[in-house]
Simulated scan of single mutants.
Amino acid sequence: MLSKTIISCAAAAIMAGTALAQADEAQSMPDLEARFMTMALDCVQREYPNKISHVLSSDADAQPPHSLHPAFYGCFDWHSSVHGHWLLVRLLRTMPESELTQAAAAALDANLTPEHIAGEIAYFEADGRAAFERPYGLAWLLQLGAELREWDDPRARRWSAAIAPLEQTVSDRYRSWLPNLAYPIRIGTHNQSAFALALGLDWAREAGDVELERLIVTKAIEFHAEDRNCPISYEPSGEDFLSPCLMEADLMRRVMPEADYVVWLEGFLPDIPLDGASDWLTPGIVLDASDGKLVHLDGVNLSRAWALEGIASALPHTDPRRAALLAAAAVHAEVGTRSVDGADYAGGHWLASFATYLTTRRGLEAPAWRALPE
């Protein structure tokens, strides 16, 4: 095991490299965005290999992915296809016009049609599919919807109108699921509830769905308001791509007033340093990037970084914990972003979406706490 001194030195070196990268951000961001968009374009219409989550009720259900999911058949699995489409939309908003952006718009035009979305809804509504892609894929579908709703562009309005019926189907799944969810799901992979509640809440606020907003806020408070001493030293588990502790804290900043959140965070993560240190949380290590489960740790570094930034953003600028949160975020961002190279499809089909969520600071655009309308 590395000694604390060695870890501190390594973190300091990473921080120094991050500082240089940030100084050259204006030049490097277009290159990063082009790389991420290229990776998404490589998969959103790439049907195979494909891992379908699909219950067969008869021989008639044995169909290829494009028949089961006319819009979201690519990127190895349904949820990765959804957030691959979100990536294309997100970067279309930030990148200058080029052959890449034209290709992205063409892919979105081809996939996000009313006919294809009707096929997706038909899949959801068939018997035995009440839990399909719940909650992770549902959360990303709502994130795609929120992104399109925010963007004042004729293309976005066209795609938003196409997916609106599926947004309704997915938001209804939240409404039927959450009242029956007796306990939070505190894991670092797809079934985690905190991540899904956060993205669902962001969509509800953007869409003006006060009923769903109230349900999510109530459930988040019910689940987490009394949580204390989250065992972050136990993280990450060997296949995590979401931090249970940090994603919960990133959710709670959305549902608590600042004064309450400051106190809650002190009880929930009491060991955040006050001296600006970065080595209180070290990045996950991936020893085999071709292993689809082990490569999850590249994702946990990226999602930790955006959660740490989100947590810091919810604290007063005078809060002494902010420096350590942002220092750890910088370390994780550098390590995580460097891993997104597309060298292996095991990570290449999804990591660019996580990197884009981080580098475009999508999480920091999420509405903070607000009093619920009467």
Rank of each mutant, 00 (worst) to 15 (best):
T5P: 00
I7K: 13
I14N: 02
A19Y: 14
A21E: 15
A23F: 11
A23I: 09
M29E: 14
M29F: 07
D31Y: 12
A40N: 06
V44F: 08
Q45H: 14
E47N: 07
P49Y: 07
N50G: 05
K51P: 04
H54T: 01
Q63I: 09
H66G: 00
H69S: 04
H69D: 02
G74Y: 06
W78N: 01
S80E: 09
H83E: 10
L88I: 11
S98Q: 05
E99K: 13
A110Q: 09
A110C: 01
N111Y: 07
T113N: 03
I117H: 06
E120Q: 00
F124P: 00
F124C: 11
D127A: 12
F132P: 03
L138V: 10
G145T: 02
A146C: 09
R149G: 01
D153P: 00
R155E: 10
A156L: 10
R158C: 08
A161L: 03
I163V: 13
Q168F: 10
Q168Y: 11
V170H: 01
S171L: 05
R175V: 06
W177H: 13
L178T: 04
N180Y: 14
I185H: 11
I185G: 05
G188H: 02
G200Y: 12
D202G: 06
D202R: 15
D202S: 15
A207Q: 05
D209M: 05
E211N: 13
K219F: 08
H224R: 11
R228S: 05
C230H: 05
P231A: 05
E235A: 01
P236L: 04
C245K: 04
E248V: 04
A249M: 06
M252C: 07
R254K: 14
P257F: 00
D260I: 05
Y261F: 12
V263Q: 13
W264A: 00
D279H: 01
W280M: 11
L281K: 13
T282L: 15
D288V: 02
A289C: 05
S290I: 09
D291W: 03
G299D: 10
L302R: 06
W306R: 14
G310H: 11
I311N: 00
A314W: 03
A314V: 00
A314T: 07
T318D: 12
D319N: 12
D319G: 04
A323E: 15
A324G: 05
V331E: 02
V331W: 03
A333I: 02
V335P: 01
V335Q: 07
S339H: 08
Y345G: 08
H349D: 04
W350I: 03
W350A: 08
A352L: 08
Y357R: 15
L358T: 02
T359A: 07
L364Y: 04
A366K: 11
W369H: 01
P373L: 12
